[in-house]
């Protein structure tokens, strides 16, 4: 499955597309749900400012167009608001601050590894201390805290339903938690793989939420059907390095985007259906197919590899942005989706 460079995609040349230099080792995953002004937000606010306030960033996620949550390696979580008062400069304001909600038993700060949001209010944060915190953007209180949810550090979290989350730890052990239940035990528990593979990212299918895809340290994409979750449906050995992030296109679920620590950024799309249209497709979702998934997918590289890890990506309509280890954000315009 060697990715080819599609003619219609125009990757920006590495030098000209450098929008902004970033200050961190880990680029902030900027989950942009915002529409057209996201170019300007990238230009103005992502860099140094955040860094000075919160230290090394873990993850950022937008709740709506103005508010976003961001986690830090010092174990604190911040709800921030972007404002654009009089001039073109966009400013950030911290509206709520949950200080040191992740910490180790010996009192040290624990990095808050990542967070997930549901609708506009619910926020789940997880950390290296193995804790899960449920927050609400309207409240300063921690609504629910599961201490020692995991004996290893939790690296990924995702909302399955408003009351159900899935976490995954350093060893690839995945747990499903029911937030309503009062006991601090997971409702379900399964392994990514027996060989100590660390999952690096999680995502679900935009229309079929029971379909979950995980990316791991070794560059494989694993598909799960959460209706029967003990074994993965299929495993695709995809990227060279660790997969940093995967995302389905929110409007066009046939398209998946992934990026890796080897500097690749790929666009996966299902092949146009060939053969007789009289034969109804038995399974409309290729990811759920047990075999030959590779033959049903086409992969394009969106950007020539820079030799540096791409740490995050996000998309909106036909634009993809990604943050790279060379302290730059790249914007790829005009990705063909059809």
């Amino acid at each position: 499955m060697v990715a080819s460079n599609l003619g219609t995609l125009k990757p920006l040349s590495p030098l000209t597309s450098t929008i902004v230099g970033l200050n961190r080792m880990m680029m902030v995953p900027v989950y942009l749900v915002i529409e057209d002004w996201f170019e300007s937000i990238v230009k103005h606010l992502v860099p140094s400012w955040l860094y000075e306030v919160v230290g090394l960033m873990g993850a950022n996620m937008f709740l709506d167009t103005d508010n976003f949550v961001s986690s830090s390696s010092s174990g604190s979580v911040y709800l921030m608001r972007t404002c654009q008062p009089y001039n073109d400069q966009i400013h950030l304001k911290t509206t709520t601050e949950w200080k040191n909600i992740h910490k180790f038993d010996n009192g040290e700060e624990s990095p808050c590894t990542t967070l997930a949001v549901y609708e506009k209010n619910d926020i789940i944060t997880v950390g290296e201390d193995g804790c899960i915190n449920l927050l609400n953007s309207q409240s300063q209180r921690i609504l629910r805290k599961i201490d020692n949810a995991d004996s290893c550090s939790i690296h990924c979290v995702i909302f399955l339903k408003h009351n159900e989350i899935l976490t995954s730890n350093l060893r690839g052990q995945m747990k499903i938690w029911d937030l309503r239940s009062q006991n601090d035990q997971p409702t379900n528990n399964f392994m990514l793989s027996g060989d100590q593979v660390t999952p690096t990212c999680l995502t679900y299918h935009p229309t079929q939420r029971h379909l979950l895809i995980t990316g791991d340290d070794l560059g494989a994409l694993t598909t799960w059907d959460l209706r029967h979750n003990t074994y993965p449906i299929n495993v695709l050995n995809a990227h060279e390095g660790a997969i940093s992030e995967i995302q389905f296109h929110p409007d066009q679920p046939d398209h998946l985007f992934s990026c890796s620590s080897a500097g690749e950024i790929w666009h996966w799309s299902t092949k146009a259906k060939t053969g007789s249209s009289l034969m109804p497709e038995s399974d409309p979702n290729v990811w759920l197919a047990h075999d030959n998934v590779k033959n049903k997918l086409e992969v394009f590289t969106l950007m020539p590899t820079l030799g540096k890890s791409i740490n995050t990506l996000d998309l909106s309509r036909n634009k993809v942005i990604c943050g790279c280890d060379n302290e730059a954000i790249y914007l790829i315009n005009g990705v063909t989706l059809c």
Partner: peptide, 17 residues
């Protein structure tokens, strides 16, 4: 580091890695 922080499970995980 994990051990020092009282996270022996995590420490074991790193040892296994």
């Amino acid at each position: 580091l994990s051990l020092k922080r009282g996270r022996i499970g995590n420490a074991l995980c790193w040892a296994l890695k």
